[in-house]
Nucleic acid binder design. Structure first.
Length: 596
RNA sequence: CGGGACGUGGCUCAGCCUGGUAGAGCACUCGCUUGGGGUGCGAGGGGUCGGCAGUUCAAAUCUGCCCGUCCCGACCA
């Protein structure tokens, strides 16, 4: 049993002005955390207690499929050079030098270290499969830490790594993690959806993210209620409905029309009385060749002429999905074309760009020619409007395929809510979400580049195949608060709450009440609950406000009615209150906290 | 990194425009009071006004540079 009067629980009446999202404000107000600097937080008593419960659940589930390790946070540069990520991770990696001048990195993920162990120790297929995990601090020099604990520069990750002999083995390890992750999040009381994801800087083939819907989230998820399809917007595809095409004019061939000052899609559509879906949007980029990563281009590369011109044409009401585009191009980075570049490749100003007359490159990023990418939603369309590459002019009667061609046609647009599910055609929903975990089928990227080899049953040397799997521990906490809060505070699921119940005597000056409260708290503790006794000499109102704030799911008031042997049991999520006999409170609480 | 905002006791903020040496509420300490939704009264402690430089007789206030934090964009658990 913990006595509030002896604890350090610095609750705040007002949230610091820096805090914007609910979980950030409430974590500060409830005394869970304090900020040290941008994206770096200290966990105080309640925060650490809560995190410990999350860690315990995670360990309990992970131990069923994997073995716990603890790897260093300090990594030698050479290790990261072997995988190519010393430069590949760029600015996001914290680097430092030791007294001899040797470079070290603070670990932002542990594929390299795990693979180093694997290559030194694994010799035979008989040792496979292996799944190794750890719960450890990761360091990432984020360009923009934000939203309290949602995006930070130092955080706890449960990361695991699987080594298998073949793809079937990797499938099994991947599926084990999928199941275990669902179990962890269920036990943490989170509503989680698994979605198809882009692999990003990790590399590899298949990957899934585990998302919690929240307006505070930084990701966008497309999902289908009918068939269960769900994907990150970066990856989501859709079926677009048919469009009523415009009637051709004249001989049906492209025809110049004067559109003075009408550069923006909205202006053109209004001017011509058409829908933006009849217009062709032009988006012009310069793309930097190379593997996609979090690395911003260095000045040398920017001036070194490695940038290639890319023109994207898509429906006027669609937007470019830059992740899809980068993956298609095999490029690392995109930036918008500048006015001089537009002039060079289109001989026209922004607002009046179009596909007619441009000479597309034969193959992607092969030479200096313009790479023309057509979005697949332009296929089978006709009589569209597009910029004429001439100030104040557009074309009408434009039919893709007939009037212009691209280097490549591909899906490079963001889907829009309401479009058809790619699997079943039902209307897709689009909503923001917090990514709390990500699992990857890495393939051979690290085992191959770092030289891990085992002998297979035929005595032949083979490269083991790898998967990696991460959970952001603080994000479980943050997501739980985002899912369960009101203006007075928040309530954690019992499994991860710092305490199950707070016992609140309304007046400590009343010796009978104080004694009763102590007795009740002891009773609850004996029944197996994590009990916080609010024995502070504060007024009842103060204690109630604090109790509502700090995330404890149940409260037992010991007040006036205690002389009649009655207590109040308050459920924080609903604020429902019921009178309970002292002797029955433990049993009732046990009933209330039954899972399911 | 690009764009925007802010930086004044622990917290929320006023004062800055129009320079004259710092103020409120909450919190904290003490006393009394009160005792079921942040009690009331009184007395107190606590601030090199983010830093440096400049202008000026005089700078929280004006100017420049720097640092820090937050928000919007490009990245990730």
């Amino acid at each position: 049993m913990h006595h509030w009067s002896k604890l350090f629980i610095p609750t705040l009446r007002e949230a610091p002005a820096d805090a914007e999202v609910a979980s950030h404000k409430l974590l500060l107000r409830a005394g869970y955390v304090r900020q040290l600097s941008a994206g770096v937080y200290s966990y105080l008593f309640l925060g650490q207690r809560c995190l410990n419960k999350i860690l315990a659940i995670t360990r309990d589930e992970m131990d069923r499929i994997a073995q716990e390790f603890l790897l260093p946070a300090l990594h030698p540069r050479e290790l990261w050079e072997e995988s190519g990520r010393w430069t590949g991770m760029g600015q996001n990696m914290f680097r430092l030098q030791d007294r001899k001048g040797a470079w070290l990195a603070l670990g932002m993920t542990h594929e390299e270290v795990m693979t180093d162990i694997a290559r030194h120790e694994l010799r035979s297929y008989k040792q496979l499969p292996q799944i190794w995990y750890q719960i450890q601090t990761k360091f990432r020099d984020e360009p923009r830490p934000k939203s309290g604990l949602l995006r930070v520069r130092q955080f706890l990750m449960k990361d695991s790594y699987s080594f298998d002999l073949d793809e079937a083995g990797l499938d099994a390890s991947y599926r084990k993690h999928e199941g275990t992750y669902h179990a962890i999040f269920r036990r943490c009381g989170l509503q989680v959806i698994a979605v198809e994801a882009d692999s990003g800087a990790m590399g590899g083939s298949q990957s899934q993210e585990f998302m919690v819907y929240s307006e505070a989230g930084e990701d966008v998820v497309a999902s289908c209620a009918a068939c269960g399809y769900a994907a990150n917007l970066e990856k989501a595809t859709s079926r677009v409905g048919p469009i009523d095409e415009l009637a051709p004019t004249g001989d049906g061939r492209p025809e110049l029309i004067h559109t003075p000052g009408k550069g923006a899609i909205a202006d053109v559509s209004e001017f011509l009385g058409i829908s933006p879906a009849h217009d062709i949007k032009t988006v012009a980029y310069m793309a930097l060749r190379g593997q996609k990563s979090s690395r911003p281009a260095s000045t040398a590369e920017q001036s070194g002429g490695a940038w290639q011109p890319v023109a994207v044409f898509l429906r006027g009401d669609h937007s470019v999905n830059e992740t899809k585009l980068l993956n298609l191009l095999g490029a690392r980075e995109l930036r918008p074309m500048q006015a001089e570049e537009l002039e060079q490749f289109f001989r026209a100003p922004a607002g009046f760009l179009g596909p007619i007359g441009v000479e597309p490159a034969k193959t992607l990023l092969a030479g200096d020619a313009l790479n023309v990418i057509l979005d697949c939603a332009l296929e089978d369309r006709k009589n569209m409007i597009c910029g004429a590459n001439r100030l104040d002019y557009h074309y009408r009667n434009v039919t893709p395929g007939r009037d212009f061609k691209g280097t490549r046609t591909a899906d490079i647009r963001n889907i829009i809510a309401g479009e058809g599910c790619p699997q079943c055609g039902a209307a897709l929903k689009v909503a923001k979400a917090i990514e709390i975990a990500h699992i990857f089928k890495l393939g051979y990227k690290y085992t191959s580049s770092m030289g891990a080899r085992v002998l297979d049953p035929n005595g032949k040397e083979v490269t083991p195949i790898m998967g990696s799997y991460g959970i952001g521990m603080e994000r479980i906490l943050t997501a739980a608060i985002e899912q369960n809060n009101d203006s007075n505070g928040f309530w954690m699921p019992r499994s991860i709450a710092p305490f199950d119940v707070v016992v609140t005597p309304t007046n400590m000056a009343d010796a009978t009440l104080a004694a009763t409260a102590l007795k009740v708290a002891q009773q609850l503790e004996d029944a197996g609950f994590d009990v916080l006794l609010d024995d502070r000499g504060e007024r009842a109102g103060v204690k109630f406000k604090d109790a509502d704030l700090v995330g404890i799911p149940y409260r037992v008031n010991v007040g006036k009615k205690a002389v009649e042997g009655l207590l109040e049991l308050i459920t924080r999520s609903t604020m429902a209150s019921q009178d309970v006999e002292i002797s029955r409170v433990a049993a009732l609480l046990a009933e209330a906290t039954q899972p399911g």
